[in-house]
């Protein structure tokens, strides 16, 4: 029974993959209405709470000091995550850096999957708003390796239907409609996913990070879900972020 259902579903998915002219795609006017929602993004409330969490840790001044940055260089530094940080001996995203910051400040770090962590890490990334993403995958061997691993995770077909991220996120299918949604160009030439996550998800009514979104996508595509903060997940974020290099950061995004 399950097999039959899966076949039926994959036919459904294939048949709903169509170009923009079909009746189920949204008009430009409709899309503009959704764009307007960005003016009043409910995630603004969550970032406000993230800002309070950061204040409890000494605010941006204390974070800048911890990262050995000046008040002026902090934003640009934050626009370069995920990055290799020598004192941790690993490539980390903003959330893991914040866990270390909390730990080193004598506080109990928030869990990576907690809403407090989503709030504070989104707020911290928003400090870099309008800064172009400046991740450097050639900065050192660690970043080179992370990028290579991320690319591999992106391209590896796995799970129940043998899908990879590449299947739905490659230049050949950009713009095709999957259930009213055009498949996005994740690169800086397109919607630069890495620059607009964390984002408010209208289907979930909550704020999610890029890694959390990857997990949702894996789950729906029947791929084993990779844990937040794992080497592979961070590598995937490195890959995505490099794809969007140069795009100005605009946090929080607003997504379906």
């Amino acid at each position: 029974m399950r097999k039959v259902l899966q076949i039926a579903l994959s036919v459904l998915v294939a048949s709903s993959l169509a170009y923009g002219s079909e009746q189920f795609s949204m008009s430009d006017a409709d899309r503009a209405l959704y764009e307007e929602l960005l003016d009043n993004n409910p995630a603004d409330m969550m970032l406000a709470s993230g800002s309070e969490h950061l204040d409890a840790l000494g605010g941006t001044a204390s974070l800048a000091k911890y990262l050995e940055q000046s008040k002026d260089s902090l934003a640009s530094y934050l626009a370069g995550f995920p990055r290799y940080i020598d004192k941790y001996k690993s490539v980390v995203s903003i959330d893991q850096m914040l866990q270390a910051f909390m730990h080193d400040s004598g506080k109990k770090p928030y869990a990576l999957k907690s809403s407090d962590m989503f709030d504070i890490s989104s707020y911290v990334k928003s400090i870099a708003n309008e800064q172009p993403i400046n991740i450097d995958i050639n900065a050192n061997e660690h970043m080179k390796k992370a990028y290579a691993l991320g690319k591999e995770v992106f391209n590896t077909r796995r799970g129940g239907r043998g899908l990879s991220c590449y299947n739905c996120h490659n230049p050949g299918v950009v713009g095709r409609i999957l259930r009213t949604q055009p498949l996005p160009d994740i690169s800086a030439k397109g919607n630069a996913s890495a620059a607009t996550w964390p984002a408010y998800r209208m289907t979930k009514s909550n704020l999610a990070t890029l890694q959390k979104r990857f997990q949702g996508c894996m789950e729906n595509a029947l791929l084993a879900v990779i844990p937040l903060g794992s080497k592979e997940m961070t590598a995937l974020e490195v890959y995505f972020t490099h794809e969007a290099k140069g795009a100005p950061i605009a946090i929080p995004g607003l997504k379906r």
């Binding site: 003016d39 009043n40 603004d44 409330m45 406000a48 709470s49």
Partner: peptide, 9 residues
């Protein structure tokens, strides 16, 4: 409850 009031411009 978390709230926010915004005035534009």
């Amino acid at each position: 409850s978390k709230t926010l009031i915004k005035i534009k411009p």
